[in-house]
Design a protein around this nucleic acid. Sequence first.
DNA 1: TCATTCCTTGACCGCACGGTCAAGTTCTTC
DNA 2: GAAGAACTTGACCGTGCGGTCAAGGAATGA
Lengths: 178, 178
Amino acid sequence: MEVAARKFAENGFHPTSVAEIVAGVGVGKGVFYWYFDSKDQLFLEILHEAQQDLRRSQQHAINDAIEPLRRIELGIRASMHWFSKNRHLVNLFQFAATEERFAPALRRGQDVALADAVKHVKDGIVAGAIRDTEPEVLAHAVLGVITHLARELVQLRNEDPDAVADAAIAFCLDGLRG
Amino acid sequence: MEVAARKFAENGFHPTSVAEIVAGVGVGKGVFYWYFDSKDQLFLEILHEAQQDLRRSQQHAINDAIEPLRRIELGIRASMHWFSKNRHLVNLFQFAATEERFAPALRRGQDVALADAVKHVKDGIVAGAIRDTEPEVLAHAVLGVITHLARELVQLRNEDPDAVADAAIAFCLDGLRG
DNA sequence: TCATTCCTTGACCGCACGGTCAAGTTCTTC
DNA sequence: GAAGAACTTGACCGTGCGGTCAAGGAATGA
């Protein structure tokens, strides 16, 4: 599965054949279909695990803090680190959005992430630390900053995730406060 | 080309066969290969035109303003409108990022957009309207907010592009000012 | 030791794809 | 109206894919 994820990320889902994957692992083709129903299902499983893993990292990181802004800050930093450690998976997320059969699965995970973020934004609004506008939109904006900076600066240009996270945090917190 | 772009966006690049495209246009397969070298080249042309068109919209919109922040604001609004009018093309941008042979073409266009944004951010810093940190990172953050909100709110949830643009502008301008 | 289940192999199948091309039709030019 | 260029057709080709399956090893239990 690790091998498959890397190949999918590197060459794309369709151009990567099952034969290539099993050759990379060093097994026969049959064993692949013993453990997975289909190539599609393998992809969905990779996607699901990645989303779970990212969320776990975030949850674990924000456990220490209570104030909403601080939790958002820690969440951003944790996300950036996760993206830095799992660069190849970013491509899979992107690809999943482009085909109808994978998009729903991707969406489920994203909705969870959004709900997490919205919760903290709402807390922030109640506490008076965040401007009082639609929390969903603010949360989306933050997610947009994170994913874009992760892709462009961390994944593509190999910048230090901590430095990028600092910039993202500064930008987002000011954007949230208004 | 219009037809092909829509089919690519709807079903994905690989699952859309050349036969499907020419059937959609109502012509034979030969005529396709008379005008395009290959399916790949068609995709690259669609991508290139889309990027050019988006940029034209932005340039046209910001022509009226002189102050950097105002130009950024108008750019954001124009982008959001363009994404709203060309929802299907968003998927193509996403897909292009996931395959190595298309990624460079996509990147060229994105670099242009980034350079545009960076220029205005730098002007803003000089004018004292924007905090003095790395302009590239700030520009990326703005682009991230735009693309993410366009995807999630305009493309997916059909929200009013003007309202989304307002929110994006508020968030970004505060994030830039610091 | 045999029987049964679990696991693995890789040749093979059917199919659908991207791309070709011989043939035919329309348009342009003189 | 002849000659040739521009354009269009769709049957066809080779290839490589996702997926199958008969066959055959290990492991387990009695």
